[in-house]
Write a protein that binds this DNA or RNA. Structure first.
Lengths: 224, 224
DNA sequence: TATGACCTTGACGAAATTTTGACTTTCTCC
DNA sequence: GGAGAAAGTCAAAATTTCGTCAAGGTCATA
């Protein structure tokens, strides 16, 4: 499937030119000419973001910080200025790389490919999910808090696996039941509540922190 | 509208049997007895694909990869073998689930329904962002004012979701009730007024601005 | 068959949300 | 400006959902 790139720049001429070029290289490109538009287009779950630093309103650095609250993917700054300070600011804001204008199209493509490759490697089989010092090894079905291994039953582990693999998303009880048991729950059931309770108790005892959050009236979410 | 299912299997007996069964459950079914036929029938835009792994010529896994280049929808493998390696191969190829032969028809229907529901959920309306730093993340059901997360109850969030997804449009109370509660309000009710009040108070406290406008005698409108 | 871990269920109090009803304020039209 | 309708406010009642506990059921294993 084609990689999706979100390009954020307030110069329509540039965005048009670049998006054509990127599309020629097989990427799916969506363009945002302002920060608001960029935020609105985050839902397309881009694999990589190209971000102009100089923009009216919320500038690229600010935007980068906000984006980082929502999704994880390589963010490359397009910028004219590139002092040491810019670099620091950019990295602090959560950026991954810089490309100084004017830049060669070859270089742009090369850098994009490099970052996507790296990202791919990093996001590979989520065999291990880590979360606030907790290590969840999905292939071994083992969970560690620091050096100490915690013990969970099958159902408990399945629930943890499901929730922690989809952090921050809210799932209602039916959805969890469906995901873990593999079929629909009949009527109202207490099973999930009870398992969640057991899981919480074990995690709290070991780590002292909350991992599963209740979203009242909606379900549960794994805090990341 | 009936969901469309594309079934790909080289055993005519099986496909005939299954397609009848699926049709009895209200699905529109198209059958392909070979990979080539399957590719040719992709243009029917199925909502879900059932794919036999073992087929002469291009096998199910190969076919799956190719399909993935064209459309996005749940792909369920029908398979006799199901080792860990198969599972990995299948996931790598872009499959969503496995059903091992022989399987019960009940189970098949249940899984199909589950995947269609999930797919529906994932393809939800996009995240919405209004100007001035308010970010409404529909999939996580989180709302941010700049860096700060605001808290809303289920109904409150649902109303915000509905209005903000249709900015600048005016909806009367009945319409909102219908959209959020899922059924019609009986008689005049204060419920909407009250929820709107709570929402406004929270948004005002955090951001200092009005997002919901009253259109007197008509209803409410999300200002964008 | 006995044992123990695990899964499931029903009941109940606590907590949070939702709804209601009475009342006040605001707006429109005459 | 005043009457009437629509919208806003507030507190309290009604309802829903959640967390917890105790107990019964199931399953694999010794």
């Amino acid at each position: 499937m084609a990689y999706k790139i979100l390009m954020v720049d307030d110069e329509p001429i540039l965005t048009e030119l670049l998006s054509t070029h990127l599309q020629d290289h097989g990427y799916t490109v969506s363009v945002a000419n302002s920060s608001d538009e960029a935020l609105a287009k985050l839902n397309t779950k881009p694999n990589l973001i190209l971000l102009d630093i100089n923009m009216p309103g919320m500038d690229g650095l600010e935007l980068c910080k906000v984006i980082r609250n929502h999704i994880v993917c390589p963010i490359l700054f397009l910028t004219a200025r590139i002092t040491e300070q810019d670099k620091v600011n950019g990295l602090r804001a959560g950026g991954d790389d810089y490309i100084t204008k004017p830049f060669g199209l070859q270089e742009l493509i090369a850098r994009i490919e490099a970052h996507l490759r790296r990202d791919e490697r990093n996001n590979r089989p989520p065999e291990v999910v880590t979360s606030q010092g907790l290590i969840i090894n999905l292939s071994d079905r083992k969970i560690f808090w620091n050096e100490q291994e915690l013990s969970f039953s099958k159902r408990e582990f399945d629930i943890i696996e499901f929730l922690s693999s989809n952090p921050n998303q809210v799932f209602d009880k039916e959805r969890i039941y469906e995901a873990v048991w593999g079929y629909d729950a009949e009527g109202d059931s207490n099973v999930i509540k009870e398992h969640i309770r057991k899981i919480r108790a074990k995690l709290m005892q070991a780590s002292g922190s909350e991992y599963i959050e209740t979203v009242w009236g909606m379900g549960y979410r794994w805090k990341k």
